[in-house]
Amino acid sequence: MLGLLEIFVLVLTLALSFIIFVPLTGVLVRFRANYNPKGLQLDSEGNAQPHTGPVITSYFAMFKRVYQIEGWSGLYKGLMPTLLSTLFVTAIILLFMDTPSPSHGKYVAPNTSILGTLFYSILMMLLSLPTSVITYRSITTPLRLPYLNPAKSLRVLLTPTERRKPWILYLTPGLLAASVLHILIVVLFLGPIRRLLVPPLETGAFEKISFWRLGVYIVVMIAATIVLSPLEVVAVRLALQRNHASADYNSISQEINADADEQEAEFAGNEEDVIGLRSETDPYLGLLDCGKRMIDEEGVFSLYRAWWITLLGVLGSVASAI
């Protein structure tokens, strides 16, 4: 059991991480989600129409735009689902995992075998995937969501089909594949390379570090960004793609109910939306289809939005490896 001091430190650490990382994560999600096609789009009658959404070319430009349109409340969109999901995962770790001091991160697994780490990472991903979907959607919605009314928020963020069948979130085309592939690369490829090139050292043994191996490891981490960054960008796009009516559900009534729920909410911005989202009438069909369409419609660099954040994440593991 944790003592009072450990609980206080844990709460303080989580609070500081929310204050700092919720706005940064929200800007990242919006930057990667913003739909910015290169060419003309076709309307319902087949006529070419220029794209009218915002053109944001950098992470910091997106930060400025969010603040200008929605203010501080816009920067802290997604706070409540992030808080609830973090508390839920932390409670599971404290109660069921042999991890005395859980850290805030995506794949922070106990020090165990490769298969044990893989099982742990996939389990935590499956537990957190629905809350990740809700968090991403709460960040990107142009509507103002109440902090203390989760039922109303879920009516806006989820389609009637998703509320009726919550497990359908796991069947969102390509989303589970992108998440699992990310884990496989991190655990089965980067993990063994880390153990081989930068084995854990005892305290005070800094002089024993092989700097040429450390250099090779850093180069490998940089190369891994080429694969991991597109997976993270695609995962954001797919998580925002809502699952509409199934074959045994009335699609017309679903659309009416969804519109009624959204009309009850106020817009967070005064004049315009922060980002533009791709039309749900022409959804991505899966992981590869999403990547291909992003390249065709928005250019290959759309897959590398804020790639340097992915790079900082993988390089951060260098410090924890020594």
Rank of each mutant, 00 (worst) to 15 (best):
V89L: 12
N47H: 11
L175Q: 01
I93Q: 04
P110G: 05
F18N: 00
M124Y: 02
A223T: 02
S132Q: 01
T159D: 04
Y76F: 15
G286I: 07
Q241W: 00
F96T: 06
S153P: 03
N270K: 15
N243I: 15
T310D: 07
L171W: 08
F96P: 00
G174P: 01
L303C: 04
L129C: 06
W307D: 02
L95D: 01
V156F: 00
T13Y: 13
T117G: 12
F267H: 14
I139K: 12
F18Y: 14
L24G: 07
T90V: 04
A33H: 11
K208M: 15
P199E: 10
W308E: 10
M1W: 08
G78P: 01
Y147N: 06
I218L: 01
W308H: 13
L181G: 05
I226V: 15
S246Y: 09
I7A: 12
F206H: 11
P150F: 02
T281N: 10
L315R: 03
I322S: 07
V220W: 05
L154H: 01
F301R: 12
G39M: 07
V108W: 11
L10P: 02
V216T: 15
I122P: 01
V274M: 05
S251T: 02
L231A: 08
T117D: 03
E297F: 06
I256N: 01
V22T: 14
D282C: 08
H244S: 02
T57F: 09
I122M: 08
T25F: 14
P23I: 13
G26S: 10
P146R: 01
I226N: 00
S17P: 00
V186E: 07
Q241I: 02
I193K: 07
P150E: 04
A260M: 14
D261F: 13
L118T: 04
I92A: 06
T57A: 09
V219E: 00
Y107C: 02
G3H: 10
C290K: 00
T203K: 12
L158F: 11
E272M: 05
V108E: 14
S279T: 13
G71H: 12
P150L: 10
T90H: 03
P142R: 05
F211W: 15
L14D: 09
R30C: 10
V66H: 05
G204N: 10
M294V: 08
L231V: 12
I139V: 15
K152I: 00
V300W: 14
E271K: 12
S132V: 12
Y107W: 03
V198R: 03
L169E: 09
A109K: 00
W307A: 06
S113G: 13
I69M: 08
F60P: 04
L40A: 11
G3T: 11
T159F: 05
C290I: 01
S320L: 12
S73T: 07
S17R: 14
W72F: 14
T13D: 07
F18I: 08
M124L: 07
S153I: 04
V108G: 06
F63L: 15
K165Q: 09
F88P: 01
G26H: 09
G3I: 08
A245V: 06
E297I: 12
W212C: 04
A15H: 02
T140H: 04
A265Y: 01
L175A: 06
R164T: 11
L143H: 07
A177K: 05
R32Y: 04
E6D: 12
